[in-house]
Amino acid sequence: MSSHSNAHVAHHFENAEQQRQSAQLGMWIFLVTEVMFFGGLFAAYTIYRSLYPEAWVVGSHLLSIKLGGFNTAVLLASSLTMAMAVHAAQTDKQKASANWIILTMLLGFVFLGVKVVEYAGKIDHHLVPGPHFFVDPMAELAKLEAAGIQVGQHLRHAFEGANPNHIQLFYSLYFAMTGMHAVHMIIGAGIMLWLLVNTRKGVYSSQYFNPVEVSGLYWHFVDIVWIFLFPMLYLIGRH
């Protein structure tokens, strides 16, 4: 065994450096598979958006930009706290690391809570695809006007031309994409819990912090997915 070895090097690795590099490469490759996984949904989104641009405009307008924007801020903040957690773990400040992990987890729950509020609103407004789906673009347009929003010529045409079935397609993709993202957030929260327990137990140190580091990569990735989802679903249709 090499001189670098310590108690945390698994039996099949030569040394801590090899173990750390393997863990990192493994997580990066996992993230590649995640990119391909979401990529399938992004492909479907892109194709349908180019086929039915009007429906995408209407779909976007029915989403709450305030809630979505708030959630984006929450996730960006959580990326910061996650980075702080990793940094603290690396510099042997395990107590601080545990606190940052708790904060990250809490921000994750805030995000999920807001998502629940959004989903509940969609259920109330019959915007969940399926037999109960109902949307009347003209009524929605009237609501926009009643709210004092300046409705341009282009927007009016979009609302007039949008097919409710295609708006349903938008919502199928909305739920599939944000739902998949939420599943990743829930898994992320689970990982935070596991990190917290181990950190409290004193498993990690400046000698061994691979799990905190690669979990951080995962958490940042999930944030980045949202950074793509938010403009694609909430913003592009509003231009």
Binding site: E34, M36, F38, G39, G40
Partner: peptide, 8 residues
Amino acid sequence: LGTPVVAI
């Protein structure tokens, strides 16, 4: 590169 796409 391929399996995740068929998964989704």
